[in-house]
Structure formats: C-alpha cells, structure tokens
Design a protein around this nucleic acid. Structure first.
Lengths: 101, 101
DNA sequence: GTCGTACTACGATCAACAACGTACTACGGT
DNA sequence: ACCGTAGTACGTTGTTGATCGTAGTACGAC
C-alpha cells in the first residue's frame, strides 16, 4: 500500500496555495470537494483533461496542502484539508467558492 | 497624455484575479496599496526586480482589474480597485492581506 | 531647447507548467 | 492465475510567464 506524503500545516504557504488555485481545473476539484464534503475518488471528477493530467493536478493540490489523499483499494480518496487552509489563510476558500467561476 | 484602459467590473474574472495574485511581487504591490490607501507612483514600491519587470507586473494587475493607473506628470499613480474586487470576489483581498506571506 | 525623471516597448532568454500518450504498478474480483 | 480498474511515472511538446537590457517616449523643470 503506497503512502502519499502531505505537507504539515506549518509548511503550507500562501504562495503555493494561490499558485495551486490559479488554475480552473484545480479550482473545479476544490469546489466539488467543498460542496460534497465526503472524500471522493479521482474518477468522481468530470475533468476536461486526460488521466495523466488529472494526476498532475491532484498532486499539485496535495503538495500545496489543499487536499489530502489516501489509497483505498485501487482508488485514491481525496478530501479537502479545510482546517489547514482555514488556519493559514482564513476566508480564502469561502471567498473563492462564493465567486462564480 | 497617454490613457491606460481598465477592464469594466463586469469583465473582471476570478481566473485573471487569482492568476495575478499568484505572484509574490504582485501580492507585495497589492498589500502595500491596501495598507497605504492613497494612490502611489510605481517608484514608491521597493520591488526586488528590474524596472521593466515592474512595468510588466503593474500591467498584469491593471489588466486583471485589480488596480487602476493614471498618468500624473511623468508618474503613474496606482490605486487598488477595492470596490471592484470586493464586488466580484468578496473577502479575497482581506484573506490574502491577513495571511502573512 | 536641454536635461533628468518615470515609465514603456520591444526583443530575447530561460524556467515553469499544462497537456498528452504510453507503459507501468497495485489492488480487487473471478 | 488472469483480467479489469484506478491511478502513477516518465518523457515530450507547446505555451505561458518572469526576467532582463536597451532604446525610446512623455512630461516637468530650468
């Protein structure tokens, strides 16, 4: 069972977070994770890019500290690290969710 | 007297705004404009990049609708379009200002 | 008009990044 | 053991973007 590593809350930088959120595909992922609060597998997201590109975007989000991912069978369940982002940049996620894309 | 054009509030997209704010130099400009509320000339900003690069960053911010700029003599006075951003993406600027960079 | 200041325009370079396809791994089910 | 599913890894391509330097413009002051 592979394990993915996630940055500690203290290592989450506003720079990484904003760079990660400056892409519409990744914002779509985040928005879906905010509205459906449960962890979801990557294939639950109808993204307009190929599979390997999806992998890339999920990794960017994970490495920025925005989502957490853990293996569950052949799937990876992703969920929002709301506590972390709300601690580091309070209000950011809500502001982005509220604004229509 | 040259005139610079600015996007209408309605044309300001979250995509452009987030892309613009995903750069530390541009965030520094925005943060300074938020704390010193008056319009300031480009040379008031101690930015760690060359002059032509500064021009580039100011233009990105202006074209994203985040700042307005107008000529005043040989200088260009820049100010934050707080009303526009607060209308389009309420809470975003405050969230970014509050978070330490 | 001449000079200095403030900024722009243009062209170049280099790094970052989004996207893809193919080949691969890991796991569950049969 | 075999197959299918879910996702990764790797190498590549094309685009965007940050940076710079140099040359140029526009204005104010003298």
């Amino acid at each position: 069972m592979r394990v993915l590593d996630h940055p500690d809350a203290a290592d989450v930088t506003i720079d990484d977070v904003l760079r990660a959120l400056a892409d519409p595909v990744r914002r779509k992922i985040v928005r879906q994770l905010m509205t459906n609060r449960d962890a979801q597998s990557c294939s639950c997201f109808a993204l307009p890019v190929g599979k390997s590109t999806q992998t890339h975007h999920f990794r960017v989000l994970r490495e920025a500290g925005i989502i957490s991912q853990e293996y569950q069978g052949t799937s990876i369940m992703s969920s929002l690290r709301r506590d972390v982002i709300d601690e580091r940049i309070p209000g950011l996620l809500d502001a982005i969710l509220a604004a229509e894309d």
